[in-house]
Amino acid sequence: MSSDHTSPADSTETKSTREARMGEGVDDRFNSRLREAFGSSPFILTKFDQFMNWVRGSSMFMLQFGIACCSIEMMHTYAVKHDLDRFHAGVPRASPRQADVMIVPGTIVSKFAPRMKRVYDQVPEPKFVIGMGSCTISGGPFQEGYNVLKGAEEVIPVDIHVPGCPPRPEALVYGVAKLQERIANGESSPVVVKPYELEEFGDLEDDELVEHLADQIDAEDLVMRYNWVDSP
């Protein structure tokens, strides 16, 4: 972080600024190894947003969010043996309003997608999403199902995909570490085209289906429309 680092070899020949300033016999109780590494400067210079990124990556509150099979492996990742807490990411919060990271552990079906979108919207910025398992990538083994979304990215943007069915806890830990790396480097989450947005029913295009449902759904109700033909 500092540019003027003096190696011990140099200091034998010419006195470093620090030594010259302190003089002989001065108690160097303030001088730690870290100080030595920084050289003469008693200050650490860094950009504030860089610092904040590093902090953000090192203290992540996860949303306690279980959907399907992957959540069992997610629980194992939080618990003994794998202990995600060692990687500064082991504080599961039950409320989305207290969380930074959402691990999406499982298949997303039509009935759940609007609810998941709502939960995602409730997480305060900046927020990050880890897609766990094949189902959040493409629908996984259930891709051909009449009710299954072809991946979490149809609804919310995903930062890291962890493949597997289900991924081992080690794989999830690796995914979390990769996410932390990205956050520390200040790489923002990818913005994807989101075909399925919640919108008011009244704003939907007036086709046969909308007309058919008109007496069942209020115009102000939030709805999600699935165009299965457009999904990959």
């Binding site: 289906l209 909308v210 209020d218």
Partner: peptide
Amino acid sequence: QTQPQVVPLR
């Protein structure tokens, strides 16, 4: 299976 569907969040 390819017909569109609308799901409300009410």
